[in-house]
Design a protein around this nucleic acid. Structure first.
Lengths: 329, 329
DNA sequence: CAACTTTATGCACACGTGTGCAAAAAATGT
DNA sequence: ACATTTTTTGCACACGTGTGCATAAAGTTG
């Protein structure tokens, strides 16, 4: 059976398709009696509008593109989940794209986004991305974009992120107040703004507590459990080993804790741990963990609202930059 | 700046748009010289095809819809991640929909899917869904669908799932071989085929090891950590308490382990634990856990391949039902 | 009841693309 | 050089929808 169209209804009811269109859309300009008849008949036949025709004609698209490195990461999956819910409530659907930390993939994604006539984009850029010029195609097609989490100063879009600097600063001082003095940090690639800020915060925190010990490992590849394991191993076997570890991701933390557990000797219990994400899974571990909790709901909501603002009012391109505070628990 | 179209190129090159179209698509029927000229000019101008026009005209859609209860669950996020990757490689993009375990939401999603002219659907139905008739609209619009994980026998689509019966059976016998005799099971709503099968497997396993002890708690709501906590509490405070627990989800397991850890008295170490998912997060815990690992890659790949088969050859509607074996580690 | 105003419907077009068909151009054969 | 075949291009239409404009119908006023 073929799809039922506005023209089918028109023919079967002895009307013109424009009349049917008006009956379904406008509420003036149309006889109330025929309107109701059409609505009834359309409902009966299970008519559903063809969005492709709508979009082709010029009504905006209702697809929002979300670009994340990979959706199989609880921070991003949670984020996408919330965005998807908000979008659906607002009458939009969400197309997910995974850059897999590759610029080439990112370029392909943008091509696809343009071909699909996507209404707006929410993106967290890949680790590999230093040149962000491919995102600027969006400008040309007037597709609004909001960056979140992994943002770049070279892109002058609205952005939403954690206040990474002050967060790391607080983590260090909090660990210090719990009695730890040799605080090491497993971080990411400083070419990414986010990690750069966090590292600044880390060093700022160390300065604030007045310690000379510092150990910041910069992992430039994609985070894996193995990486966390080996990086922790490396840190703990160094001449002056730390008594507390800060992980930039629960994935790294997982590897790190595996190492500590394996070493035995109450190393797991006696080492201070702080990590982004991972709560509540890690809370079962014997370790005493300081969780750095991002307000993911707020971040997602703010990101979505900013994008909507840009979609609905495409004229004023005020680029807002929002920062949220993390909670340490 | 407006979007550049095939007509723009035609006008600017003094050709007819149909010629440009042929230059971009077909490789016969066109002078190679003009073809190259057009390709070059199109590349220069950054021409991107308008998929809405394509779809309207009748070329199939390139959007695949994936319906899951919620994407913020590692099993589903991993699944969607793999599907998204496979789809993108095949030239498709993925739209994600979350039923949130609600039939009403599911109905809205199907409406949206039909309006969008989606090429095919991959779905895991919601817990609330007993009547699956809303999925049958898809038949009417000739939109192929493949069910996975949460499937229903009333839907005669192709399906991909774990061999749940034999898996649970194996879990029970494995726990028994490790010395546990009083094996309890925290399961889901038996109105869902998946959980029904697992429960059959559980009882089958008990029978095989020849024990009379049986304790199967059926949780009908959405799984939460709190639920896992309280259900475990309830089980462990029962007159004849179990010495091993099987969890149907790592979310329940997390709550359960939290309870066991809190009780102290080496309860965590001495209780046998088996759970779906959650590896490797839970592996840091002191508990000795038997992980029930689904071959998610294979499941996703098989699901995607089946859908593709149905999209490419819409005529033969052979409904395949695939089952995969879990690994216990 | 005629003249005018309001309301309701039909007509035609546009959006961007691909394709069957016809016409034009080029190539081939005699 | 002309007839025939092949290649290349142009034309027109379709896909489903909404809207400006014209026309028809209905309602209002004097």
């Amino acid at each position: 059976m073929k799809r039922i169209t506005i023209k089918d209804i028109a023919r079967e009811m002895g009307l013109h398709h424009s009349t049917v269109s008006r009956a379904l859309r406008s509420r003036s300009e149309i006889n109330q009696a025929t309107r109701e008849k059409v609505l009834k008949y359309a409902a009966l036949k299970g008519y559903q509008v063809n969005r492709n025709a709508l979009q082709l004609r010029g009504s905006g698209s209702n697809i929002i593109g979300v670009i994340v490195p990979n959706i199989h990461h609880s921070f991003f999956s949670n984020f996408v989940s919330i965005i998807t819910r908000l979008a659906f409530e607002a009458g939009y659907i969400v197309a997910v794209f995974q850059s897999e930390e590759s610029v080439e993939q990112e370029k392909e994604i943008l091509k696809s986004i343009i071909q699909q006539n996507i209404a707006g984009v929410i993106a967290s850029i890949s680790m590999e991305t230093t040149d962000t010029s491919h995102f600027q195609q969006l400008d040309h097609y007037k597709i609004p974009m909001v960056g979140f989490d992994r943002i770049s100063s070279s892109l002058k879009t609205s952005t939403v992120e954690l206040d990474n600097l002050s967060t790391l600063r607080n983590v260090v001082t909090t660990l210090h107040s719990r009695g730890y003095t040799k605080i090491a940090y497993l971080s990411g690639n400083p070419s990414i703004h986010l990690y750069q800020e966090r590292q600044k915060g880390y060093f700022g925190g160390l300065k604030a507590i007045g310690t000379s010990y510092q150990k910041c490992l910069q992992l430039t590849d994609k985070f894996t459990i193995e990486q966390g394991y080996h990086a922790t191993e490396k840190l703990m076997e160094a001449p002056e080993k730390p008594d507390a570890l800060i992980f930039d991701s629960h994935i790294l933390a997982c590897g790190g804790l595996q190492y500590l557990k394996k070493q035995g000797d109450r190393l797991l219990e006696n080492t201070g741990i702080a990590t982004f994400g991972g709560h509540p899974w890690l809370s079962i571990s014997a370790a005493n963990i300081l969780f750095i909790q991002q307000p993911e709901d707020q971040i997602a909501k703010a990101t979505f609202d900013l994008l909507m603002e840009n979609i609905v009012h495409p004229t004023q391109v005020k680029t807002t930059a929002l920062k949220f505070q993390a909670t340490l628990i």
